[in-house]
Write a protein that binds this DNA or RNA. Structure first.
Length: 280
DNA sequence: AATTGCCTCAACCGCAATTTT
DNA sequence: CAAAATTGCGGTTGAGGCAAT
């Protein structure tokens, strides 16, 4: 008990990574694949803790990462998913395979939170100016639902998780798998050298022991890890919850709105969710 | 041109979950 | 089975960049 943090070890370097360190890390991962992080510092000679290596890889170096410039569509998805799942950034990121949880978290904290606060204030103002009279259901759904919905959405996400777990090799899972594979293939076009390295490593048939480290080593949503934050099931999942019958009207509505509001090509991730809700 | 304040985002920290010994 | 080690996640921090003064 009381194990000291790995980064407290003497001689462990902290702070921003240098290009040289990046190259060392990437070439090591190209050779051995992501995972087994504890051996990375010793085998590479990097004066970094394993945690730092993993973080650098998953948040910056791994293939398929899109950086900056969140599209309105991505923004919308984050807002909806945050309302739906709460601050489960890793789960949210699994619906946006090109984005890291850290990126999403940062974007939420720096942009979206403010945006939502502002719009909420605006809503409040217009509401009070209407002398607290009835509102249209549309605005209520988007704003007011956030609080009441936030408490009930956990159940909804659990249901989704439960369903996914119950259908280990569903058409949806296949769809997603295919989708992710396409993602990877398409991304080769604008890959950085690092990304190409990783791609070639994967084509060589290597697979990491842990498969949800990122897009490069497989998408977070696969038939194996589908059904929770982790590949063996979510933190919150248990059999009792699996049998619950949560309300679905809001998510269905949301999915419908999202789908109709956006051009089809951009909405493949959402159509996955749509498919889910239909099957439910 | 210099200073100040704000914003962004990469990286760290602490904790919980999971795996290994 | 318990303890130790490792991994993953979410919250937070702080350095650097940029705009305003």
């Amino acid at each position: 008990m009381g194990r000291p943090p790995c980064c407290d070890k003497i001689g462990i370097k902290k702070g921003p990574w240098t290009p040289e360190e990046d190259i060392i890390l990437v070439s090591y991962i190209q050779e051995h694949g992501p995972g087994n992080w504890r051996s990375v510092p010793t085998n590479t000679g990097l004066m970094r803790c394993s945690k730092s290596c993993r973080l650098r890889w998953t948040n910056y170096l791994r293939p398929g990462i899109k950086r900056g410039n969140f599209t309105p569509h991505e923004e919308g998805m984050i807002i909806h998913l945050q309302a739906l799942l709460g601050n489960k950034w890793a789960s949210i990121a699994s619906y946006l395979p090109q984005r890291t949880d850290n990126d999403i978290k940062n974007y939420w904290n720096t942009h979206l939170k403010k945006k939502l606060n502002k719009s909420e204030c605006d809503q409040e103002r217009s509401r009070s100016s209407e002398n607290m009279t009835l509102q249209t259901s549309a605005t209520r759904n988007t704003i007011n639902h956030r609080s009441t919905y936030a408490s009930s959405t956990e159940n909804i996400s659990r249901l989704l998780e439960g369903w996914m777990r119950a259908s280990p090799k569903s058409s949806t899972a296949n769809f997603l798998e295919q989708k992710m594979q396409n993602h990877q293939t398409n991304n080769l076009m604008d890959q950085s050298p690092y990304e190409q390295l990783q791609g070639s490593w994967e084509e060589a048939g290597h697979h990491s022991k842990r498969s949800n480290g990122g897009l490069g080593d497989g998408p977070k949503i696969t038939e194996n890890n589908i059904g929770g934050d982790h590949e063996d099931g979510g933190d919150d999942y248990d059999e009792e919850e699996h049998n619950a019958t949560p309300p679905l009207t809001f998510i269905e509505k949301w999915l419908l709105e999202e789908t109709s509001a956006t051009a089809g090509g951009q909405m493949e991730e959402m159509s996955h969710l749509m498919e889910l809700s239909n099957m439910l």
